[in-house]
Design a protein around this nucleic acid. Structure first.
Lengths: 193, 193
DNA sequence: AATAACACTTGCCATTTGGCAAGAAATCAT
DNA sequence: ATGATTTCTTGCCAAATGGCAAGTGTTATT
């Protein structure tokens, strides 16, 4: 059985025995997504927790005016899940879509809980993922407030260049809270310097 | 022993036996804060998980230009904690301060984990609080993007009138991602209608 | 009650960002 | 490869928001 990337990722987060690791990995199953496939669609209850081994995904939803808004980008080598729908078993308002061809390993809600129940260290892993995601989200919120469009662009450029390599302009623009027109202009100005 | 509000709150979130409830409540201790007291200061590792029975708090930090930014408002009857610092044992970049006189019940990291370990249902409570907070944060992020300053004001007015009753203009302004000058003007315009 | 400190409002003007629409460039399907 | 579709850029102008600073109102302190 392969699942190398998954095992490495878990091991990097918390030190557990090889045995436990393979017990955990056993419950994940391989998944692939073609470009533009959906991992989660709004209206569904999210039932999969995914480790993204390769590729690039994004989450999006719609604001009150019906405009699509990108809410998150997921690079490879991290877990992908919509916390609220997955853990509270509520209908998701977000979509998660493959931006490029992707592959990874997923586990269902039921099985994940079973593992959380039986393996206390792994419970810690689950909590750590949740807290980490939350924390990243907070930092992003902060970066949005009290920064100009150009500053938001620059920060993202510095911290997440891969987003610009993978995603479309209009998706990045809505992620940054500006129009694609503005982002285009800002990018141009910025490249002059 | 009192702790009525705490017990009611937990019971509302998940149905547990009276016995279990009082076992849980026993580990919380009463806390009071005078107006402007701090529940958490940046630079510290957050070690308390608080149920706010009465009063009003706010979280704030500073953006890259050194401006104070309000990141959250906590009305009474909910839990107050900074997930990242509390659960990951990292230094907090946020401050949490009493906006009015407050009182509630708090529990330490160590004791909370002990309860999580020994009472599986309560573990669910912990996860639910974390997910709920995260979910609220996401909704807020979304409400900020692609909305004008006036729309952001109006939404907050509708959903959280109590913030306007309790907090200062400049704190609300930074929470809404605008200057206090703008908020003052917008509020005026809005009251005309 | 007087003073000081703080919170809020308002006028004037500068700057940033958006809206629209046309054109250029890139990508996709046949 | 060719045309069709989608994505990105750009010019022009309008609208929204911010910066500064003075003025007014409110609250706290002695």
């Amino acid at each position: 059985m392969d699942k190398e990337p998954l095992i490495n990722f878990i091991q990097n987060c918390l030190p557990v025995s090889k045995k436990t690791l393979s017990d955990i990995a056993e419950h994940f199953e391989e998944k692939t997504f073609a470009k533009n496939d959906y991992f989660l669609r709004e209206g569904q209850i999210s039932n999969d927790y995914l480790f993204l081994a390769d590729g690039f995904m994004r989450a999006f939803t719609f604001d009150t005016n019906g405009n699509e808004v990108t809410t998150f980008f997921y690079p490879k080598n991290r877990v992908v899940f919509e916390a609220s729908s997955f853990f509270m078993r509520t209908i998701s308002t977000e979509n998660i879509q493959a931006v490029t061809d992707c592959n990874g390993y997923s586990i269902t809600f039921e099985r994940l809980n079973m593992l959380f129940h039986s393996i206390p260290e792994f419970r810690e892993f689950g909590r750590a993922m949740l807290v980490k995601e939350f924390s990243a989200y907070k930092q992003r919120t902060l970066a949005m407030i009290n920064k100009s469009a150009e500053e938001r662009y620059t920060s993202l450029m510095i911290s997440n260049k891969d987003i610009f390599r993978n995603a479309q302009l209009k998706h990045i623009a809505s992620y940054l809270g500006m129009t694609d027109t503005s982002l285009s202009r800002i990018r141009k100005e910025s490249s002059k310097k």
